[in-house]
Design a protein around this nucleic acid. Structure first.
Lengths: 329, 329
DNA sequence: CTGAAAGCGCTAACAT
DNA sequence: ATGTTAGCGCTTTCAG
């Protein structure tokens, strides 16, 4: 910065002023500064800026790894709306199977960067663990069940989703159903989804076989379990807590001669996977875009004027996407 | 930090020492410091650390938005290997359709954070634009064609890929083929892919209809063009420069009664989309994992000891994934 | 092994 | 409108 100042024949303060644009600078000097910046290829150190100013316009995003397209989409959408709102996103993406401690470490990194707000979009870390930060900066749970009175939440209405899904299965005539429920150590949302679907089906009088996954269980394990159930003739439909499980199942099932929906019906959840309609697989499309957008709305307002908003727990329901895989009524 | 020092009854320097772990500190004092850190929930400011130390262990990643699962996967893999190597990734994800200037702005942000290296994994920004940074820090092009003698490159062997794809089409008996080539403003890699495939097919004696996309053309436009070609009976096969285009095409085609591969054969590229085998769609699987890993290898070595490695342009070929969509030989 | 002190690159009063 | 100056929170000599 000193170089730029010297080159332009002004003080460092003036350089800072044209950089921030907050204060008026004589046009002629401004141009000289701009030229010097260009010439020297100067890029201000955001660390130093943050340090001196004591604040940041950037917001930390803790998000699950984007191998799962739903998170890829969420990430892209959050990014997009943040940009729109003039906010910078700093992403921390812990490798999924490493679990909660790893996620806390990533959070700590974000705090180290002195972000002005936190968006938590992983399924694993507990709210009780992130509550300690709420006194320092606004924290918003994104796309994960949230009901802590100190943490904002913008997420999917998993109860509504699960109910829609269960009803659809029931209405397609299924009475003996396998329902998978992801481990809470894997995904809070998917766990809630599975539990709720199972409960709804039972209430409707169905015979439900609930499959709880182990911590970070591999796809193949669930698929094998489900295939056994189908072979044993125990169920006529299987509900998966996300589309990837469903896809793995149908792929393997077909390979060994189990046909969908002739031999077994399936339905998943997320609805983000490309080609779902082409594959005739039923699912429920999560309102990812809306959730991303509202998250940015909430956190940007919170960063603007902290405490300007009561704690909210917004939830948005998804849209059922029926397809042949559910069999015929 | 001062609070921690006071709480532990040591100087700030000592706190810094236990934080870095670089210098020996008397065990008893170390424990007191650690306890104080815990108690006060202290998280060091990475900005200040960087400022004082003058360096960073973090590397900047410029990557295309993860709506496209291939980039989602690349992102996750880069993240994973970086973690393994003890490096932090700072991600900048410009919204895709905003183009090169936007990407440069994102790059500048990364430089502002004083990252120690740059991984460029977007299809749009030109090498000539990023060359200016090579004198300041190591820059590696990831998953995009690179041949500039000053910039490292770890990418896909698009010529080999395109050749494999074209050969497969030819060997399945197709002689009149439509080949799409993405605009260079959209993706350098896909452009090269398309051009090469077309050239190879022509060399083999095929009648090639090349479709060059406009800048950021919507999916629907390409699909419509291809459908017209098929309806007019002009081609028996269509090559898409990535799987998403292919998927959009087959979905719409089926809707209007065009059957794949009965009426037209198709092949895509990337091979990352979930469910490709289930959909019986032919493609070519890019070695995303390898490219991600090698990129981290290269940049970590470069950051360790700058200039310790000659400029390399590694390329890795993909693996053809045949399927019914290509018709029968 | 530990503390004191000098910055790192920047911003924000405070003068002028 | 512009320059001067005092830090921001940390690391790193340099003494001891």
């Amino acid at each position: 910065m000193a170089d730029v100042a010297r080159e332009a024949g002004v003080s460092r303060a003036t350089v800072s002023r044209v950089l921030s644009g907050s204060v008026d600078v004589a046009p002629e000097r401004r141009d000289r500064v701009l030229a010097a910046i260009q010439e020297l290829g100067y890029v201000p150190s955001s660390g130093a800026q943050q340090l001196a100013a004591g604040r940041t316009r950037s917001i930390g995003l803790l998000i699950r790894d984007s191998r799962n397209p739903t998170y890829g989409l969420l990430h892209a959408e959050v990014q997009r709306w943040a940009e729109e709102a003039g906010l910078e996103i700093i992403t921390a993406m812990p490798t999924h199977h490493r679990g909660a401690p790893q996620e806390m470490a990533a959070l700590r990194r974000l705090l180290g960067m002195r972000v002005g707000g936190l968006l938590v979009a992983t399924g694993v870390v507990r709210t009780s663990d992130i509550k300690q930060f709420t006194s320092v900066l606004p924290v918003v749970s994104v796309g994960r069940p949230e009901n802590d009175p100190e943490v904002y939440g913008v997420s999917y209405d998993e109860v509504d989703n699960a109910t829609q899904l269960a009803r659809a299965v029931y209405e397609h005539g299924h009475r003996r159903v396998a329902v998978m429920s992801t481990s809470t150590e894997n995904s809070l949302a998917e766990n809630l989804r599975g539990d709720t679907s199972a409960a709804v089906l039972r209430e409707l009088g169905c015979e439900v076989t609930k499959i709880d996954t182990r911590r970070f269980a591999p796809l193949s394990e669930i698929t094998a379990t489900m295939i056994d159930l189908v072979r044993a003739g125990k169920v006529s439909a299987v509900m998966f807590s996300n589309d990837l499980w469903m896809l793995d199942f149908v792929t393997h099932a077909r390979r060994i001669g189990i046909r969908v929906p002739r031999d077994v019906s399936v339905i998943g959840c997320d609805g983000v996977l490309h080609g779902l309609p082409y594959m005739d697989l039923a699912s429920l499309r999560l309102p990812v875009e809306v959730v991303a957008r509202r998250s940015i709305d909430v956190i940007s307002q919170l960063m603007e004027t902290p405490g300007s908003m009561e704690i909210v727990h917004e939830t948005y329901g998804g849209e059922l996407q029926l397809a042949d895989s559910l069999g015929h009524v």
